[in-house]
Amino acid sequence: MIYPWIWKRLPGGRFGKLVSAVVLLAVVVLLLWYVVFPLVDGLLPTDDATIGE
């Protein structure tokens, strides 16, 4: 599994690993929110409605 692999490679004890995991998760979320999603938004047809009258 991927989560035990990440957990074993994080530095520190249990508390340090928890803090590192939270920081890592926050970095991934912010990277997606501010970089990836704006780039993909221009490629998606969000103005085309599929529900008609």
Rank of each mutant, 00 (worst) to 15 (best):
I2A: 13
Y3S: 15
Y3R: 14
P4D: 01
P4Q: 05
P4G: 06
P4H: 03
I6P: 00
I6T: 04
I6K: 04
I6S: 07
W7P: 14
W7C: 06
K8N: 15
K8R: 11
K8W: 02
R9I: 02
R9L: 07
R9Y: 07
R9P: 02
R9G: 03
R9C: 04
L10T: 01
L10M: 08
L10V: 08
L10A: 08
P11C: 03
P11N: 01
P11R: 05
P11D: 06
P11W: 05
G12E: 13
G12I: 02
G12Y: 09
G12Q: 06
G13Y: 01
G13K: 05
G13V: 01
R14D: 04
R14F: 06
R14Y: 11
F15Y: 04
F15M: 12
G16N: 02
K17G: 04
K17Q: 05
L18V: 07
L18H: 03
L18K: 14
L18G: 07
L18E: 09
V19M: 05
S20G: 13
S20N: 02
S20T: 10
A21Y: 14
V22C: 04
V22H: 10
V23M: 09
L24W: 05
L24K: 02
L25V: 09
L25P: 01
A26E: 07
V29E: 09
V29R: 05
V29I: 04
L30T: 08
L30F: 06
L30G: 11
L31I: 12
L31Q: 00
L31Y: 09
L31N: 05
L32A: 10
L32F: 15
L32M: 13
W33A: 15
W33I: 14
Y34I: 02
Y34D: 04
V35S: 07
V35M: 07
V35H: 01
V36Y: 02
V36H: 00
V36S: 04
F37I: 11
F37K: 07
F37L: 13
F37H: 11
P38V: 07
P38C: 07
P38F: 05
P38I: 03
P38T: 01
V40H: 09
D41M: 12
D41C: 08
G42K: 03
L43G: 08
L44M: 08
L44D: 08
P45Q: 05
P45V: 00
P45I: 04
T46Q: 13
T46H: 13
D47H: 14
D47S: 14
D48F: 11
D48Q: 15
D48W: 14
A49L: 09
A49D: 12
A49H: 12
A49G: 10
A49W: 09
A49Y: 12
T50I: 06
T50V: 13
T50M: 09
I51F: 11
G52T: 12
G52L: 09
E53S: 13
E53H: 06
